[in-house]
Amino acid sequence: MTLSYSKLQRKMLMTVLAWIVAFLIFFPVFWMILTSFKSETEAISRVPHLFFSATLDGYRAVQEQANYLHFAWNSLVVSLGSTVLALVFAIPSAYSMAFSPTRRTRGTLLWMLSTKMMPPVGALVSVYLIFRDAGLLDTKTGLLIVDALANLPIIVWMLYTYFKEVPREVLEAARMDGAGPLREIYNLLLPLSMPGIVSTSLLAVILAWNEAFWSLTLTTSKAAPLAAFIASFSSPEGLFYAKLSAASTMAIAPILLLGWASQKQLVRGLTFGAVK
């Protein structure tokens, strides 16, 4: 009885803790959405108000000033395109490293990950010059390539982890039946690790959607994604918090809905192989 009571207590404590953590994580998003319905004066008020008379002025101003659908379309094309492109390279890479490792595989994986540790601004001028000479500035293709390359290390790492969970014997059996590497990947590896691939893809889409540095630097108007849309509503002179919040809410809404709709898949994929 005492044991079950303490178990119950621990469960309650964990539940409360989980709610607190969830609240802390979600609070900035919640406050941003709330601010988007405030007037500019209310938004900058020194005493923050939870209850206020809501207005759509922020959204109206954003709609008048910029073409949301143009930016959203660019974000959609770039994030989906970069994910597909990255998967095309990451799947064979992760396959070879998971099933035909060499003594340099681990080092290669760590080196790939280490490229994420470099501040992107360090490569800014060289990337900009390459893009200029290749005619890729302000193109969706250019941004898509950069996003794919930026996310490639994480995607390879995740896929490598998932592929390692697939029993080697299954692939060996297929090989004995005469399957080549492409057939192994297509007919066995992909179906067996589909939850992992889907969650990796979702994560890659989210990362590409939220990417700001290259999006802001390499595009001007034609290929500018939602990161540029948000950046146009901040101002050094004049009030802008409500408009900026409205623009940010509009920018994150699609990805927030995607994350919400696919959270089951996402969690399943991320915890794939975590407990044996």
Binding site: Q65, A66, L124, V125, Y128, L216, T217, T220, S221, A224, A228, A231, S232, F233, S234, S235, P236
Partner: peptide, 15 residues
């Protein structure tokens, strides 16, 4: 038109 926040504009146009 490319309308941006001052610091982002400065970084982009400088590059």
């Amino acid at each position: 038109w490319v309308v941006l926040e001052e610091n982002i504009l400065r970084q982009k146009t400088t590059t």
